[in-house]
Design a protein around this nucleic acid. Structure first.
Lengths: 237, 237
DNA sequence: CGGTCGGTTGAGCTAGATCAAATCCAGTGG
DNA sequence: CCACTGGATTTGATCTAGCTCAACCGACCG
């Protein structure tokens, strides 16, 4: 089942960092060793295809070149939690032990750069900067996971959604008009925020009625950032 | 407000790892450099005293020698999320950037070993093993944060509580009879699981009526592990 | 043009929250 | 040793945010 839908490009190499940084406002840290690129392969993933499953041997880690990936945990009965949405420049899969504890799926058509973990480890053994960089990645993810736990444990539906919209507006590339394309479905948003599709819809509809956001099926415009922030940021300091 | 209640022991040094490991079934990884101990100080913290606040300059990281610590995030209006309970052998504060993004408070009378982050960083610059160890810590915390996100986002009250009880039974030292002391209040449990005190009480009471657990105010006995696991572990694989 | 699949909207329903009383101790003072 | 006090816990009664179920809608597609 793993990577059933991907194919490997014969050609591109070293297109790496340039593309990765495009449009990312505050990009995640990039690895300090170009040598890593020598072991990498570029792969294209179709929308909704699985990059790796929960429980797969963790052979690779990945950097997103373009598109969007969701990191997912599933329960037996189908309940789903999306840990995070990953965007161009983001890394994932690096934090696994023997196996991946989450699945990774393409939210939209996605191009990845794929790195063998073995090579990663080998380089890390030679060059401390690799390990330090991995540490930075891990702590960044940890801190954002903590923010999400407050949201999931203690925030109301509209607080969660306001926070999500602000995050997306910040992370996604926006055209001049301030409109950003939302790559994920309402269902994905719901499973990210611990809500149902219907609740997500109703909150968004309300915010549109209030004039705080502009909204179509796939795009978002923040019209009154202050109003959204007031709803979202009840977190102290 | 920081450390208002702690005092520094003049005496003990190097008692470190021995005490730390006592009773911990699967202890977190310990640092590979005894040199770190040369910069450490042992401090005692009173119940409910703050070790560091949200937003404090991150000058130290800590290892728990004995007792229990909660890592908490507060919202303006007092809503509270406890990210994790930390037990003897656990490290915290290492993942901060300039400031701590969470507060740390003693759940019970607690003894800590406190390490200046500056010294940590200096040693890490000399010895890769320190950095690797920090990476291990960070990824461990990240993986457990993900499990908690599934719980907070998608599990029912009884599933969350069953999972919590199993985790505690596993992490806490248990006397011969299989009874473990629960150091935290019902309120702490509620704020950890994203529930109210009343819901926690009712679920626990129900489990006691069903005979799956034995329970007093401060202690827990798992009587039918299988029953608890059936409720808790709906996570695939 | 009919079908399908997201998305939206409406109408109840319910798990868990909220509000309100008891109880139960642990610690205190006599 | 016992009564007293205050906070934590437990239990009961009610309420509600968000879920569930169901209908409808609009865009895209063969």
């Amino acid at each position: 089942m793993e990577q059933s839908s991907q194919h490997t490009f014969a050609q591109p190499r070293r297109i790496g960092l340039t593309i990765a940084r495009a449009g990312a406002e505050a990009s995640p840290p990039q690895p300090p060793l170009a040598a890593l690129e020598d072991f990498a392969v570029t792969v294209a993933i179709r929308k909704d295809a699985e990059i790796h499953a929960q429980g797969d041997r963790a052979l690779y880690c990945y950097r997103i070149v373009s598109g969007c990936v969701r990191s997912v945990k599933l329960m037996e009965d189908g309940r789903r939690q999306i840990n995070e949405f990953l965007l161009p420049g983001d890394w994932f899969g690096f934090e696994a032990l023997e196996t991946h504890d989450v699945a990774a799926e393409a939210v939209s058509e996605t191009v990845l750069r794929r790195y063998p973990r073995r090579a990663c480890d080998a380089l890390a053994a030679e060059d401390v900067r690799i390990t330090r960089w991995l540490l930075t990645l891990a702590t960044d993810h940890l801190r954002s996971a903590r923010d999400r736990m407050v949201a999931l444990g203690r925030k109301t539906a509209s607080e969660r959604i306001a926070g999500f919209l602000l995050e997306m507006a910040k992370r996604m590339p926006n055209d001049r008009s301030g409109t950003v394309a939302l790559p994920m479905s309402r269902g994905d948003i719901a499973d990210h925020l611990g809500l149902t599709i219907e609740t997500v819809c109703r909150c968004l509809a309300q915010m549109r009625r209030d004039g705080t956001i502009g909204l179509t099926r796939t795009s978002l415009m923040v019209r009154q950032r202050a109003a959204l922030e007031a709803v979202a940021d009840a977190t102290r300091h």
